[in-house]
């Protein structure tokens, strides 16, 4: 009865609070915000010294690694969970303020928020608390593989096994879903960030050059691949030469990046294999027929599906628009949250 009244004042939100990007879905409107999870904080001096939030999202991300002493650009999420509670809360508050156009009342929406299935109770409570602190009236948690599967359009409610591999910025989540619930859930703390780190380390080791994480990310997006392909791409990269201490340019090829990414990719492959081992045989048969679905930004790494296909011998498909799968799935759950209980998770 009060539902319609409440929705008049506050829109319910689904949030994918990711390590790399935060996406917000508003009930009835769709995805309204897609910004990097970065906050820039300025420390002011002078008579009224205080810390102010300089920027959030895209403009804060551009400051990463380029800040002067009085500005810090922070990524408050690490490995899929909150690393800096206060900053996360402020970031969420800013994002919610951005998407809420009701000015008369301060927004107090009901929020569905995604958590990695491997997160601990403490980490889940931290996410819940920060959403409450950001102004939510109620917070419901949903596990990321479940949201990803819904968003990818998989038949989660059927009595068939659906396997989803969500490769995010901080974590890779593997889930097997049947009858609206998780049959198997696995999570490893390997994701896009680990790829970047691996590229930075590889270049330092083999070229004696130091590059920033933003450069590493652009290399990964540009020429990164997970499986030896037919064509070899090259890219010019600038970094600081460790021996000379002087910035230099050099060229790196996609085969080298493939080599650099071997270790994190192997971890993902073994996580998928473990999941297949643990899956009950009836569901395994369904997965062999349909294959597994890749979602998340990591799915955009070139030929990652080929790698998994060759390693497992199963069909692997990349979901439509893999970056937004999780938030779209949470959004669908949001639309039906009043009728659903089983797909949400407790602490």
């Amino acid at each position: 009865m009060f539902g319609s009244l409440r929705s008049y004042f506050s829109n319910d939100l689904a949030i994918d609070l990711g390590t790399a990007n935060t996406l917000i879905y508003v009930r009835g409107k769709g995805i309204v915000l897609d910004e990097p999870s970065v906050v820039a904080i300025r420390t002011e001096g002078g008579p009224n010294a205080k810390k102010t939030i300089l920027a959030v999202g895209m403009s804060a991300k551009q400051m990463l690694g380029k800040t002067p002493g009085n500005i810090t650009a922070i990524r408050p999420m690490k490995d899929g969970v909150i690393a800096d509670f206060t900053v996360t809360e402020q970031m969420l508050k800013q994002f919610i303020k951005k998407v809420h156009d009701t000015r008369l009342f301060s927004p107090s929406p009901r929020i569905i928020i995604c958590v990695p299935c491997g997160s601990t109770q403490v980490e889940r409570r931290a996410i819940r608390e920060s959403a409450l602190g950001a102004g939510a009236s109620n917070v419901y948690l949903i596990e990321e593989p479940m949201a990803a599967a819904i968003g990818a359009g998989m038949p989660v409610a059927d009595a068939t096994g659906s396997m989803v591999v969500d490769i995010g910025g901080g974590t890779t989540e593997v889930g097997v879903i049947s009858l609206g619930g998780m049959v198997y859930a696995g999570s490893i703390r390997v994701g896009g960030d680990k790829f970047d780190e691996a590229i930075v380390n590889y270049i330092r080791r083999n070229y004696g050059m130091l590059i920033g994480e933003t450069t590493a990310e652009s290399i990964k997006k540009g020429i990164g691949s997970a499986f030896p392909g037919s064509e070899v791409q090259e890219m010019e990269v600038k970094g600081r030469n460790l021996a000379e201490g002087i910035p230099r340019a050099f060229t790196i090829s996609s085969n080298e990046i493939l080599e650099a990414l071997t270790e994190p990719l192997n971890q993902i492959v073994s996580a998928v294999k473990i999941a297949l081992e643990q899956t009950p045989p009836e569901l395994g048969a369904d997965i062999a027929e349909r294959g597994m679905v890749l979602t998340g930004g990591g799915a955009l790494l070139r030929d990652l599906d080929r790698l998994l296909m060759e390693e497992t011998g199963l069909p692997v498909i990349v979901a439509d628009d893999p970056l937004t799968c999780v938030v779209r799935g949470s959004g669908m759950a949001l639309e039906k949250m009043d009728q659903l209980g089983s797909i949400f998770t407790s602490e």
Binding site: A152, G313, L314, A319
Partner: peptide, 28 residues
Amino acid sequence: LKLNARQIEALESGRFAQLPGLAFTRGF
């Protein structure tokens, strides 16, 4: 593609009902 020959034939003849579902069909 690690699929069945049956599934490939279904794709080529447009018999999508024999495939697991829209999301998978698009992926295939």
